[in-house]
Design a protein around this nucleic acid. Structure first.
Length: 1096
RNA sequence: GCGCGGGUGGCUUAGUCGGUUAGAGCACCCGGCUGAUAACCGGGAGGUCGCAGGUUCAAGUCCUGCCUCGCGCACCA
């Protein structure tokens, strides 16, 4: 067994880096796992970061919470393996490479070569891997980075293919259209994330257009901000419950009319009644009002009759009902161009409108739309379209009948632009593949209910909301770098989904046999583009099938992590079966619709199961001003600033204590410093105090054990506190309240251990002879430190390991959790274990709540003493002859301690309460209010200010007293005992075990020559000690002391001797009053006396 | 627009069932204590508890509306 060696000064950074090396050479992480090899598993799943961005402080936050739970569960005896992972596909990688290689369009990429491009992506992915690794190691996030899962590896891709095939086979995968923001210049559609990069405020012409009903003289007015979509119009949507008005123009428009358009007197238009004022610029009369449902089914004349063929649609150019139509702007009638708006598209599909493009992928109108528009870029046609619509009635033969524009209005709005080329994006219906999430919605909700969310409102609220509105998942992307969609399709629409390399090889062989030429398909075929594009398969009917030219949403990749990390179902069957669904994941709340969703989406569709049982959703990290951290703001905090200054321990502890994990965290660099100074310096100094004396005395924690019940009350108190705090700490951990747990523990270390226990125990260890009391103190300190080390270890793993190793000889990370090791119990699982058996494995000292209460009172009294001295202007070092404690429990065990703290010669208990205390009555509103009602405040005041509270109390207790007409009984008042005026006294009030205590402390403020001498001696000692410290003297070093006093009280011989002993003065001379001190003597003044002294 | 979460001294925050002096820490000032400490103790200054109503004998706490910050969703016809 180890005997502690002395501690030395703290250098957190050196300590941490030295430990990192030790952990590396001793393989501490591995042995913390290996030691629990036969225990119940707790499955953690790492959300894969992408290594093509630099790690920031927010990553440290997430990794701290991942790590602390894993370490905690490990110490609880669970087997917690932690496989690292990397997300390596997707748009961010492509964009990075495109920027670097200046390839700003798909044409450019294809000209450069897809293979070369993807190779560049493959390399780019690892740009910051080293930085990630260094950060991960330095912050002590224990995760296996040597065998991570990597989404670009063939094994991983193969598992993803397998998963997709499961969906395909279940009929959950389908090909359809999705309206996406599309940039014709770069030929790419954008994800919402990219779109968000390019919102710009622009002013554009918006138009009010008359759609002439075929069986009526009236027109329906509709509004659009994108005139280029008008040729594609095939329908009008109205709100069935919205009230519409048919209006007749009464007189011609006034001079103020601006822009094109207009209406003739007598013309009739239909629009939402609410919007008439907003839209109409003519005086009108309302002819008729009716609900939108009355309009449904009416047909109208197409604006551009040539543009869209009717096909077999019966509903084209009719009025349709849509409940999403509002009257917040426009006319309450929505112009519907099926291919150029998401709602339009959905409505069109539902209503059977023709789905025909009037705009090509190049952003220009297709031939046959209108002679003046064909082949022109849509965004430059606004004027032409407006001119066509507003031309005088009957003025142009082909195209719009004209006279159809009512009004134009410039409209200011945010519109998405291409963040690369700055062109406005077009909402454009594109071919896309979907997973039919709507088919499994009920299961999604059911599984989500079973997840333990922290905080619960993310699961119920945000995530639940998302699931209740779940849409089919568009999983295909027209990109290059990603998991290719493993679906091959023939011209006639036959399809095949490939679920493994073996299957691909088989299909290729079949195709070759059928006469289609194909490249080799080896076992290690690269499952990326363009290699997989090179294979032509053969359909059932013998037709060639080409691969659908998409890659998958990279969120699909990460959603496959629970099984793809094990190459399921091709490998590691046992491992997978034992680890699905996982027990714990933890990421930022921004992953709600990201990883949290895709994990559940994939597991629900593929396995009909949940993916994770517990999810900790972390709040966003903000800078000290509360602003989001972002590169563009330049307010990113570099974690290394803190790793290299206060260390990773303080950084982690700060992050955990700064607030609830799910609340947004304002990261304040000063906070890290404060944490370092409070928590870690204090802990270190407590440790140093113990270790230095333990080393000096050759303390052996195994030997000469002193049973707790034989130790002093102070020892038993701090051990009981340890028990209480550890228990609460653990309970808070269980409830995800890590911040509360750590704040309480910090408070315990600083206030209870350092500022009370250690301060009060210092002299016990100065004793140079071995004593039972000293031994008790050392065992107590040892036990407190050892347990605190274990409690802190999951959160801040460095310093406590150093301390634990010096105290016990072994790493804290292989130690057991003080509150029990359920993971090691027979039959335990991560979710359930025998609570009693688990508690039996806990190691905590005895708890004595009564003693804790008593000590609280003692400490309050010590503080009260200081207040009394301030009020009475009596310095702390000048002793008082006598202190009285009035009322309260028996504190005799602490009288010595209190006497010392209070600097009084003796403590006495005063039994006659009335000698120093008087009674005050306070109203108990809860009881009084129902009786007194509105009078309660007056009654309360009367009770408070009663002239003779003793008499009032007596009559209240004797059947009740009438106060202002209200019968006041004993439950209606609280009796407070406070000190009598005129005494140097203070009363402390506290509640112990349901009982209200009012305890007073009274000090005798009279001086005697003996007291004055003693006080002077204490002042001299204090000054000399400070001097010794200034001179950097060894604690054992002896000095020669000379003292000259002026106007000072006479020093008693015993006090002079005491000064000599305390200051380790071999020679100690007190010069008589009047002797002149040498010029180099130090001097100070106290209560009018001047003291000179020299230390040699 | 909808949903969620915030708004408490200069800063970070606690505040339970509504109960009468809103509690801490940092920073500041004064005093004290100290041979582990960058610590600690006592006191001071600093608060319209986002705003406005309402319920109540009593509101930081409950209700309504609004403002504001963050996040998300929807919309942007």
């Amino acid at each position: 067994m180890a005997q502690p060696s002395s501690a030395g000064e703290l250098n957190a950074v050196d300590l941490e880096t030295a430990l990192l090396e030790q952990w590396g050479s001793e393989k501490t992480f591995q042995s913390s796992i290996d030691g629990r090899r036969n225990n119940a598993p707790f499955i953690f799943l790492e959300g894969p970061p992408t290594a093509n961005g630099k790690p920031g402080i927010h990553h440290v936050v997430a990794r701290t919470f991942k790590d602390l739970v894993c370490r905690w569960k490990t110490m609880e005896g669970f087997l917690v393996e932690r496989k690292g992972g990397w997300d390596t596909h997707g748009l961010p990688v492509e964009i990075e490479v495109q920027k670097r290689l200046d390839l700003m369009s798909n044409e450019a990429i294809e000209a450069f070569g897809m293979a070369e491009f993807n190779q560049a992506c493959r390399e780019s992915v690892w740009t910051y891997e080293a930085a990630w690794r260094e950060m991960t190691e330095r912050m002590a996030y224990w995760v296996d980075l040597d065998n991570p899962y990597v989404t670009l590896h063939n094994d991983y891709v193969e598992s993803a293919w397998w998963a997709l095939k499961q969906m395909f086979d279940k009929g959950l995968l389908y090909r359809g259209h999705k309206v996406l923001p599309y940039c014709p210049q770069t030929g790419t559609s954008y994800s919402s994330h990219e779109v968000a990069l390019g919102y710009k405020e622009v002013e554009e012409p918006s138009v009010y257009v008359k759609f002439k009903l075929t069986d009526d003289d009236a027109s329906v007015l509709a509004w659009t901000t994108t005139p280029w979509t008008l040729p594609g119009n095939v329908g009008l949507a109205v709100g069935p419950d919205v009230t519409y008005a048919r209006c007749r123009i009464k007189e011609a428009a006034g001079e103020a009319w601006k822009g094109a358009g207009g209406a003739e007197v007598g013309e009739e238009v239909i629009l939402a009644k609410e919007l008439m004022k907003e839209v109409l610029r003519h005086h009108v009369e309302v002819i008729e009002e009716f609900p939108g449902s009355d309009l449904v089914g009416r047909s109208y004349e197409p604006l551009f009759p040539e543009a869209v063929p009717r096909g077999d649609s019966t509903t084209a150019w009719t009025v349709l009902a849509a409940d999403w139509v509002t009257t917040t702007d426009g006319t309450g009638v929505v112009h519907t161009a099926v291919m150029y708006g998401e709602d339009d598209y959905n409505l069109g599909m539902e209503a059977g409108l023709p789905a025909h493009h009037t705009v090509g992928m190049d952003g220009a109108f297709v031939e046959g739309t209108h002679p003046q528009l064909d082949g022109k870029y849509v965004k430059s046609c606004d004027e032409t379209i407006i001119a066509l619509l507003s031309a005088p009635k009957g003025s142009n033969g082909k195209g719009p009948e004209s006279g159809l524009l009512y009004r134009e209005k410039d409209y200011l709005h945010d519109y998405p632009h291409c963040w690369r080329t700055d062109h406005p994006l077009l909402y454009y219906a594109m071919d896309s593949w979907f997973v039919r999430m709507t088919a499994v919605k009920e299961n999604l909700l059911k599984f989500n209910d079973q997840v333990e969310w922290a905080p619960d409102w993310v699961g119920e609220g945000r995530f639940g909301e998302w699931l209740r509105n779940v849409k089919d998942w568009a999983i295909s992307r027209e990109r290059y770098w990603g998991t290719p969609l493993p679906v091959w399709r023939s011209e006639s629409g036959e399809m095949k989904c490939v679920g493994s390399i073996q299957e691909l090889q088989d299909e290729v062989a079949k195709a070759v046999a059928a006469g289609f030429e194909n490249p080799d398909c080896p076992d290690d075929v690269d499952l990326h583009r363009p290699v997989v594009d090179g294979y032509t398969l053969v359909s059932q009917s013998g037709e060639p099938m080409k691969r659908e030219p998409f890659v998958m949403d990279c969120w699909f990749d990460s959603g496959c992590a629970p099984f793809a990390q094990w190459h399921h179902p091709f490998d590691n069957e046992a491992t997978f079966n034992a680890s699905f669904p996982v027990d714990y994941i933890c990421e930022g709340v921004d992953q709600t619709r990201g990883w949290f969703y895709t994990l559940l989406a994939v597991s629900a569709t593929v396995f009909d199961n949940m993916a994770y049982k517990r999810c900790l959703s972390l709040g966003l990290i903000l800078d000290a001003e509360g602003k989001k951290m972002s590169k563009s703001r330049g307010n990113i905090v570099d974690p290394w600033d803190h790793f290299n200054r206060e260390g990773a321990d303080a950084t982690r502890w700060y992050m955990v204590t700064a607030g609830a994990p799910w609340n947004p965290m304002k990261f304040d660099p000063n906070g890290v410093r404060e944490t370092y100074a409070k928590m870690f310096l204090t802990t270190w100094n407590v440790y140093k105090f113990h270790a230095d004396y333990a080393a000096l005395d050759g303390f052996d924690p195994e030997a000469q054990h002193v049973p707790v019940e034989q130790r002093s009350a102070l020892d038993r108190w701090v051990l009981s506190r340890l028990h209480t705090v550890a228990k609460a700490y653990h309970d808070n951990f269980t409830n995800w309240q890590f911040h509360k747990a750590c704040r309480d523990l910090e408070d315990f270390m600083v206030n209870d251990v350092s500022n009370w226990y250690v301060r009060r125990s210092r002299r016990r260890l100065w004793d140079e002879a071995d004593s039972n009391d000293k031994l008790s103190c050392q065992h107590t300190l040892h036990e407190v430190l050892e347990t605190v080390c274990k409690l802190v270890a999951p959160v801040s793993p460095f310093m406590v390991d150093h301390i634990h190793r010096n105290l016990t000889g072994v790493s804290v990370h292989t130690a057991d959790w003080p509150l029990g090791v359920p993971g090691s119990l027979e039959g335990a699982t991560a979710d359930a274990w025998d609570e009693e058996a688990a508690m039996a494995t806990a190691i905590l000292p005895p708890q004595d709540l009564g003693l804790e209460d008593t000590m609280t009172l003692v400490r309050e009294l010590a503080e009260a003493g200081r207040r009394i001295r301030i009020d009475g202007a009596r310095r702390q070092r000048l002793p008082c002859a006598q202190g009285w404690i009035v009322a309260g429990p028996d504190l005799s065990a602490f009288h010595d301690l209190l006497a010392e703290e209070l600097n009084v010669e003796s403590i006495r208990v005063e039994d006659d309460l009335d000698r120093f205390q008087q009674i005050e009555l306070a109203p108990n509103f809860r009881a009084l209010a129902p009786k007194a009602r509105a009078e309660v405040n007056n009654v309360a005041n009367a009770i408070r200010t009663a002239e003779d509270p003793v008499a009032l109390l007596a009559s209240i207790n004797d059947g009740g007293a009438e106060v202002l007409g209200v019968l006041v009984e004993s439950g209606d008042v609280e009796v407070k005992r406070v000190e009598r005026e005129g005494f140097a006294a203070q009363t402390v009030e506290l509640e112990t075990q349901g009982e209200q205590l009012h305890v007073s402390l009274v000090l005798d403020m009279n001086d005697t020559p003996a007291l004055l001498s003693k006080g002077m001696a204490r002042d001299i000692v204090r000054r000399v000690q400070a001097k010794r410290k200034d001179l950097n003297l060894e604690i054992e070093a002896t000095i020669d002391l000379e003292v000259w006093l002026k106007n000072a009280p006479d020093m008693q011989a015993e006090d002079e001797t005491w000064v000599a002993t305390e200051t380790r003065s071999a020679g100690c001379i007190f010069h008589p009053e009047g002797a002149n001190p040498p010029a180099d003597a130090e001097h100070f003044e106290v209560d009018g006396a001047t003291v000179h002294f020299t230390v040699k």
